[in-house]
């Protein structure tokens, strides 16, 4: 049976990190999964909800649900967007009193998966055939770790990558300090938290930091670059696409 997924790339990745979405596409296709990209997709609404404008996220929820409700399974390449759907969508849909939207949302939410979780738990694969001969640390982002409870999936997938040396990061479970608009509303605090994360990364002497959220990685890489550490960041999908056919 051929699996078919609709990719939700998120507004953020669509605009700033197209390579992550392309890598996810390559990995999924290499596993025989048919990938679609519904073009009406936009944004999950997380930034509105988390900043305090939840009611403004309702039209975004509606757009998401209308866009994806025909899809068999939805794969998101962001832990925090996936958590947004799981934790807030039903409550936001309920606000509309639109019975149709509510029931469509209720049916849709359990079909939305985070990328690594989809690979290990739905497809049932841990070795996708990738090669990435570098020293790597995994930073479990807060939403992926504490909302989605995804930790082992990523570790399994990274552990199977040829040549990859997985190095423990001290205080790995601690937040990087990003927090969406927190990063600018409480900018000095955000960068103080980040400074410790960066110090732990530097101490781990790795070449690449891998995570399931480009938003956190953008924040981390902003400081890694500013401090000329030479450490790069990469979404898990991009690591997994290394050495596969079709990677661009």
């Amino acid at each position: 049976m051929t699996r078919s997924v609709s990719l939700f790339v998120s507004c953020f990745n669509d605009m700033l990190f197209p390579n992550t979405a392309r890598a996810a596409n390559v990995v999924l296709r290499s596993l025989g999964v048919k990938v679609e990209f519904p073009r009406r997709q936009t944004c999950c609404g997380q930034i509105h909800v988390n900043t305090g404008y939840a009611s403004m996220a309702v039209p975004l929820v509606r757009n998401f649900v209308n866009t994806f409700s025909g899809a068999e399974e939805i794969v998101a390449i962001s832990g925090s967007c996936t958590a947004m759907v799981r934790e807030h969508y039903l409550e936001l849909a309920n606000r509309t009193n639109d019975v149709n939207l509510i029931s469509k949302t209720r049916e849709l939410v359990p079909r939305v998966f985070e990328f690594s979780e989809y690979l290990t738990d739905v497809v049932g694969v841990s070795d996708v055939g990738a090669t990435y001969p570098h020293r790597v640390s995994y930073h479990p982002t807060c939403h992926s770790l504490r909302s989605l409870h995804i930790y082992e999936s990523a570790i399994k997938l990274l552990g199977a990558v040829r040549g990859l040396q997985l190095i423990d990061l001290s205080f790995a479970e601690q937040c990087c300090g990003f927090g969406g608009t927190f990063s600018v509303k409480n900018s000095p605090m955000s960068t103080a938290i980040l400074a410790d994360k960066v110090a732990n990364i530097v101490n781990a002497k790795v070449e690449t930091v891998v995570a399931l959220d480009n938003s956190c990685l953008l924040h981390i890489s902003g400081a890694l670059k500013r401090n000329n550490t030479g450490v790069s960041v990469m979404h898990l999908a991009e690591v997994l696409a290394h050495g596969l056919d079709g990677v661009v």
């Binding site: 479990p140 770790l145 409870h149 930790y151 990061l169």
Partner: peptide, 13 residues
Amino acid sequence: SMAGVATRGAPGT
């Protein structure tokens, strides 16, 4: 009841 439960085996737990 899954929400708010520490992920066993993850760092820090």
